[in-house]
Amino acid sequence: MSSIEEKRVYAEKSGEATLRLASDVGVVRVSVSADSIGEFGIEHRCTARDLSYCGGLAVATDEDVLLDGEPTGFGPAVAVGGSEVPIAAGPEGRVARYASGEWEELGRLDGVRAADGDLLAAADGVYRAGDGLAHVGLEGAADVSVPGVPLVATADGLYRLGNGWMREAEGGFERVAADRDSPPGELARACALGGGALYVYDGEWRERDVPEPLAAATIGEAIYGATADGTLYVDAGDGWRSQALGVPGVGAMLVG
């Protein structure tokens, strides 16, 4: 049986994007070109819980927060976000910002589930990280996306920030992500997972058929999804293509 360490090439190099997935065996890097899935391998071996681009690639792991592969001394983390520098949350509720090589404590917040930019999704709602932590609304937040217009996945709906939090769709949602190239104040493309279904936004939210339930999804030039047991799906407009990556415990993904 082939090992994940073996590099496999299926696509031309031109126009490549890079996907990164957080999994139980580490950060998996995958090259994609349109809907062609190229070489892939483990970039960092760890138990990865979350990923963020914030002045580098930040990874929340069971041992530490890694920044471009290097430990930062935060300790175990369940979520990482931030813009220019990482903002991380630990399993015991500690939230801190990394700057100038040191972690600055921002406060304590129980039940953090995800982070993006300066927003954190927690059991009792959405919080903004500034000089401290400020509750900015909602309850039962499971995920948050900042590019373009902030979006939040919650237990009772999908919300967009406008004149307050406006509900975009009803039902329980677990994941949400917008195209990282979205202009400020505009929502160009986004995707969300809820109740085993995938929803895609391109002016309005529509449910999309998926071959099997996804554990993570993101969007850019194509729609990308992954199952918990490591099957990657890509749809650039001509239907789904897939590749088994052979990694368990996929829980988050990024494209860049």
Rank of each mutant, 00 (worst) to 15 (best):
A122Y: 05
R128H: 10
V65S: 05
Y159W: 15
E63A: 14
L151Q: 12
G132Y: 09
D156H: 10
D131A: 10
A99Y: 00
M166V: 15
L120G: 06
A77I: 00
L158G: 02
V112T: 14
V85K: 02
D131Q: 04
A142R: 15
N163S: 15
D64H: 05
D62N: 07
V126F: 03
A115F: 01
A79W: 02
A115N: 02
L151D: 12
A79M: 10
L106S: 07
I87R: 02
L138N: 13
L151T: 13
A79F: 04
E102F: 11
T154L: 08
G137A: 11
A114N: 15
A121S: 13
A155I: 09
P91N: 02
E168G: 02
A155V: 15
D110C: 00
G117L: 02
P76A: 12
G101C: 12
L133N: 09
L161M: 14
G101Y: 13
G73Y: 13
E70V: 15
V85P: 01
G162Y: 09
A114E: 04
A89P: 08
D62H: 07
E84P: 00
A96K: 03
V152D: 01
V112H: 09
V126D: 04
G82C: 05
A88C: 05
G101Q: 10
Y159F: 15
P86C: 03
G93P: 01
L133Q: 13
R160C: 06
L133M: 09
A96H: 03
G73L: 08
P71Q: 09
V136R: 03
G157H: 10
L119V: 03
P150T: 09
D156Q: 05
R167F: 14
E84Q: 08
L109K: 07
P86D: 01
L66T: 03
A114P: 04
H135Y: 10
P71W: 13
E63W: 01
G69P: 12
S145K: 08
A155W: 13
M166Q: 15
F74E: 09
E104K: 07
G172F: 06
A155K: 10
G157F: 11
G90Q: 06
A142D: 10
H135Q: 07
V80P: 00
H135T: 07
E84T: 11
V126M: 09
S145W: 02
G69I: 14
E139Q: 11
L158M: 07
E102S: 12
L119F: 15
R128C: 08
V126E: 08
L119A: 01
A169Y: 06
V144S: 02
E170T: 14
S145Y: 11
E92C: 01
G81Y: 11
N163T: 12
G117F: 05
D118P: 14
G117P: 03
E84I: 01
A169N: 06
G111E: 15
V95Q: 04
G111N: 14
V144N: 00
A99F: 05
G93S: 02
G101H: 11
L119M: 11
G172W: 05
V149M: 07
A115Q: 02
G90R: 06
L158Y: 12
Y159N: 11
L66A: 02
V95F: 09
G107A: 05
E70L: 14
R113T: 01
T154D: 12
L66M: 05
P150M: 07
V80G: 03
A142E: 15
P150I: 06
G125I: 12
W103V: 06
